[in-house]
Structures are given as C-alpha cells and as structure tokens.
Design a protein around this nucleic acid. Sequence first.
DNA 1: ATGCAGTCTGTAGCCACTACAGAAGCAAGA
DNA 2: TCTTGCTTCTGTAGTGGCTACAGACTGCAT
Lengths: 139, 139
Amino acid sequence: MSDITNARGYPIGEMSKRTGVNIETIRYYERINIMPKPDRTAGGNRQYNHDQLKRLSFIKTSRELGFSIDEIRALLEMVDRQDFTCGEVYGLTVGHLASVREKIKGLRKLEKALVGMAAECSQGDVPDCPILETLFEPR
Amino acid sequence: MSDITNARGYPIGEMSKRTGVNIETIRYYERINIMPKPDRTAGGNRQYNHDQLKRLSFIKTSRELGFSIDEIRALLEMVDRQDFTCGEVYGLTVGHLASVREKIKGLRKLEKALVGMAAECSQGDVPDCPILETLFEPR
DNA sequence: ATGCAGTCTGTAGCCACTACAGAAGCAAGA
DNA sequence: TCTTGCTTCTGTAGTGGCTACAGACTGCAT
C-alpha cells in the first residue's frame, strides 16, 4: 500500500522509474558532481527528496535535447547560484542549437553521398561493385 | 629531393599526410586488425606499400561517410576474400543510410524544440527564464 | 525466520580515438 | 664521424557518457 511520499524520500530505483534515468547513471551523476550526495538510510541506501527528483529530470530533459554534461553543469551552476540572466541561458541554448544544425548539415551531405553511391549499384550477384570502387577512390 | 616511391615504402608520417589519418590512429587501426602489420626497417620503423595506402584511404573515406569500424571491417573482409556480391555491399550501405536518416530525424526534432524554447526567451537581464522553466518541467 | 527484490561499492568495458612519456631511429649537414 | 633535430617507437592512460558486471549487504513482506 503505502505510496512513497517525499516525507520518506525516494530510493534510487524510484528515481530511476520516475525519470527514466538508469540507476547506474544516477550514481554516475553523483560521482561527477551534477547530482548532490543524497541522505542515506541507516543501512546506507540512498534516499532522495523532491528537489533532487526535479534536478534529475532537468538533467534528463537536457540530455534528451542533446546538451553535453558540461553544458548542463553550466546551466545547473547558474540555477544553484541564482545569479544567471536569461541572456546567458539563451546564449548557451543558441550555441547548442548551432551545433545541432551543423550536425544536421553534415549528415545531409553524408546522406546525399550514400544515396548517390547506392543508386549506381546493380545489387547483382557479381563481385564488381561501384560502391566499393567509390570507397577506393583517392581523395 | 628523392621523392618517395613504393619501392622504398612509405613511413607512417607519409601515410598520415597522404590520407589525412592521424599517426596514432593508423597504429590503432593496426592494433584492431583493420590495417595489416606492415614491413619494418632494420631499426623497427613501419614501411607501408601502395596497397596499404589504398586500404587506409578506403577506411578514411568510409569513416567520413559514417560507417562504423565494424561495418568497415565487414566491407574489408568481403574485399579481402573477394567473395562478396554487389548485393551484400548494397545492403550494408542502405542499412547505414537508414541509420543516418534516423539520426537526421532525431536532430530535426531536437532543433525544433530548441528553436521553440529560444523563441520564448526575452534574453533580458532578469533572472527569470522560460528556457529553464521548460527544462524543469516534468516529462 | 525466510525469501527475494533492491541496493551497495568498486572496477572494467564500450567506441573511436587522442595524448602523453621516454626511448630509439633516421637523414642531412659540418 | 659526429651532431642536430625531426620522426617514429612502445606502452599506457584519458576522453564522454554511460553500461555491466561481481559479490556483498539492506529492506520489506509473508
């Protein structure tokens, strides 16, 4: 019965279920200091509170948006110190957006090249292949 | 003067210059068995031949096209055994193309989300930020 | 009391490199 | 021949962001 409330704290498995972050990853986040060291039970098991749950889902969302751990660390530091401006956060976000766009550009080029190569291929059973020939061409 | 010919063989630095593959990476490729162990000079320095140069540039081109080392290993094994069909190579290429397209799709989604977040931001000096609010939202 | 799921620490592995340290090789000029 | 200075050598460890163990312990329900 007894549903878990923040009075009792969340064990690590509950944190994992609620955020979708792997247990091992949560401990990893603690080790690299983007999650705080939580309270422990008498026996030594981690007990998280609601703020820590929010923090973990912030990290999760940010990771899904492709922010690096260092970028997230920067965001969290601003939050922790409360001395950020919206402009700073905007800068970080727009910088990240630019790098996402770069990646898309690169992948599109790549897609084009692969499509071109595949188009020339007869798919036949003969051991003679324009794809391999392309790959063997210098430059 | 004396330009390097395949009679003499290429030292590793020459291989690096010609293919654009980092020296350390060339040795790494040898260690993981996608490049063969080359001849050595009396003193123990590597001496590559022209075939090995071609192979390395094949690897380089394939990496630039985003093939994983394991995919390249598969391609090279086919080439080495000469028992490949064009259809097999085509399959590998098209499979890779599909994964590239998946990546592009993911990144586009991400781009959209970032643009949406950034658009709501005033960029002002006030410590109140819709981007952070979005990141803190559950789910 | 017992059983079993959950959690603990610590370490090693993943991919594809990259970056050293410290020693040795090599080619050209004096 | 010797020196100078670049290149190469081996071996190991680090990168990012986790993931996967092993082997021991905790916690909770029956």
